[in-house]
Simulated assay, not measured.
Amino acid sequence: MKRVDVVYAIIQNHLGQFLMVENEGKSWSLPGGAVEANETLEAAVVREVYEETGLSIEAKGIVAINEAFFKESGNHAIFFTFNATVREGNVHIINPEEITNIQWVEVEKANELMPYHVNGVEPLIGQIIPYTYQK
Rank of each mutant, 00 (worst) to 15 (best):
R3K: 13
R3L: 14
V4G: 00
V4Y: 00
V6G: 00
V7D: 04
Y8G: 07
Y8C: 02
A9S: 12
I10T: 11
I10P: 03
Q12E: 15
L15T: 12
L15Y: 14
G16Y: 11
G16W: 12
G16L: 08
L19C: 01
L19N: 02
M20Q: 07
V21H: 00
E22R: 15
N23G: 00
E24F: 11
G25S: 11
W28H: 04
L30G: 01
G32E: 05
G32H: 03
G33H: 06
V35H: 03
V35P: 00
A37Y: 06
A37M: 08
A44R: 07
V45I: 08
V46A: 00
R47C: 00
R47G: 00
R47K: 02
E48R: 11
Y50M: 01
E51T: 04
E52P: 01
E52H: 04
E52I: 05
T53H: 11
T53P: 10
G54N: 08
L55E: 10
L55A: 03
L55R: 08
K60Q: 15
G61N: 04
G61R: 05
I62A: 03
I62D: 03
I62W: 14
A64N: 08
A64H: 06
I65Y: 00
N66I: 01
E67G: 02
A68R: 15
A68N: 09
F69H: 04
F70M: 12
K71A: 13
E72H: 11
E72C: 02
G74D: 06
G74S: 05
H76I: 02
F80T: 13
F82M: 10
F82T: 09
A84Q: 07
A84V: 03
V86T: 07
R87K: 12
H92R: 13
I93Y: 03
I94F: 01
P96E: 07
P96M: 10
P96V: 11
E98P: 00
E98Q: 08
E98N: 07
I99R: 09
I99A: 01
T100D: 05
I102A: 02
Q103L: 06
W104H: 06
W104L: 09
V107L: 13
V107Q: 14
E108R: 13
K109D: 11
N111G: 04
N111P: 06
L113Y: 05
M114L: 15
P115Y: 11
P115L: 07
Y116F: 15
H117K: 14
G120R: 07
G120Q: 05
G120K: 07
V121M: 12
E122S: 15
E122P: 01
P123K: 15
L124F: 08
I125T: 06
G126I: 09
Q127S: 09
P130G: 07
P130N: 14
Y131D: 12
Y131Q: 12
Y133S: 13
Q134M: 14
K135G: 05
K135V: 05
